[in-house]
Computed example of a mutant assay.
Amino acid sequence: MKTELLMIEDDHRLAQMVTEYLGQSGLQVQHVDHAAAGLQLLTQGQGAALPDLVILDLMLPDMDGLEVCRRIRALPGNAARVPILMLTAKGDPMDRVIGLEVGADDYLPKPYEPRELLARIRAILRRREGGAQPASNLLQFGTLEIDRDARTVSVAGSPAELTSYQFDLLVALAERAGRVLTREQIMEAVRGRELEAFDRSIDVHMGRIRAAIEQDVKNPKRILTVRGVGYVFAKQQD
């Protein structure tokens, strides 16, 4: 069964090149050139009809890619959790930060090598699959519950909305509760993100995770910052 991708990109020549290149690697690409068409496909898609990943251009004729990303993350059900790889011609690091803040799983500036695009797609999909399954697939810390099989997180019974990458970051920390991890160790733990990797993106994602699972984001009890080192997931119960 082929992996299915949705590419929202108004550059038809680029989209055709990407579609042909990824097709040679067993990835099937459905291309639309407007944000509205992409959102409609995601809204209508249920279960197997949803793409495995969305390749989203930042500059679209009918809507800013950041707004598209926000709307995808606000969709009901599994559609909100589809991984998003954002593409942009802008080189400003702040654009990358904003993209991650609104829910993108990864960020690739144009121009890019098709091989790098393929590598990043595979890395995101590997993280989503989760690799080898651990013996116990349910992690529980007080009112925080992490289901590694269903890839869901809940706090006191209420769902916490995280992107695919943020879920993997949370699991990586929770599996090593009580252990201080550097940013590099965290990126290695989730596998697939190259270590050239815009180190501060981890901080952006941690802020989003805290917003989803902490009662008081300004006074976190679960994910703690260790200045000059990295982060630690606190073992204490609620």
Rank of each mutant, 00 (worst) to 15 (best):
E145Q: 15
E145N: 12
I146Y: 08
I146V: 15
D147F: 14
R148A: 09
A150S: 11
A150G: 06
A150I: 07
R151Q: 15
T152Q: 12
V153Y: 10
V153R: 05
V153A: 09
S154P: 09
S154F: 12
V155D: 01
V155C: 09
A156N: 13
A156T: 09
G157A: 07
G157F: 14
G157Q: 03
G157E: 04
G157Y: 12
P159W: 12
P159T: 09
P159A: 13
A160S: 15
A160C: 15
A160R: 08
A160H: 07
E161Q: 14
E161S: 15
L162W: 05
L162G: 04
L162A: 03
T163V: 07
T163K: 03
T163R: 04
S164T: 15
S164P: 06
Y165M: 12
Y165S: 12
Y165V: 15
Q166H: 07
Q166R: 13
Q166K: 05
Q166A: 09
Q166T: 08
D168S: 15
D168I: 05
D168A: 15
L169Q: 03
L169H: 02
L170R: 03
L170E: 03
L170K: 02
L170I: 11
L170N: 04
V171E: 05
V171P: 08
A172W: 04
A172G: 10
A172H: 02
A172D: 00
L173N: 02
L173I: 09
A174F: 14
A174D: 05
A174W: 13
E175M: 13
E175T: 07
A177Q: 11
A177G: 08
A177H: 04
G178F: 11
G178R: 05
G178V: 13
G178T: 08
V180I: 14
V180G: 01
V180P: 05
V180A: 13
L181Y: 01
T182Y: 06
T182G: 11
T182I: 05
R183S: 06
R183P: 05
R183G: 02
R183H: 09
E184F: 08
E184M: 09
E184D: 07
E184P: 02
Q185L: 04
Q185R: 03
Q185A: 10
I186E: 00
I186T: 00
I186F: 05
I186Y: 01
M187H: 00
M187A: 07
M187D: 01
E188M: 10
A189C: 06
A189N: 00
V190Y: 01
R191V: 14
R191C: 11
R191Q: 12
R191P: 01
G192E: 06
G192L: 11
E194C: 07
L195Y: 00
L195M: 04
L195N: 00
L195H: 01
L195A: 02
L195F: 02
E196A: 13
E196I: 13
E196M: 11
E196N: 12
A197C: 05
F198T: 01
F198E: 03
F198A: 05
F198R: 01
D199K: 13
R200H: 12
S201M: 09
S201T: 09
S201W: 03
S201K: 00
S201V: 10
I202W: 03
I202A: 02
D203N: 10
V204W: 04
V204G: 00
V204N: 00
V204T: 10
H205Y: 06
H205M: 14
H205L: 12
M206V: 15
G207D: 04
G207H: 07
G207T: 07
G207Q: 05
G207P: 14
R208T: 13
R208H: 12
R208E: 15
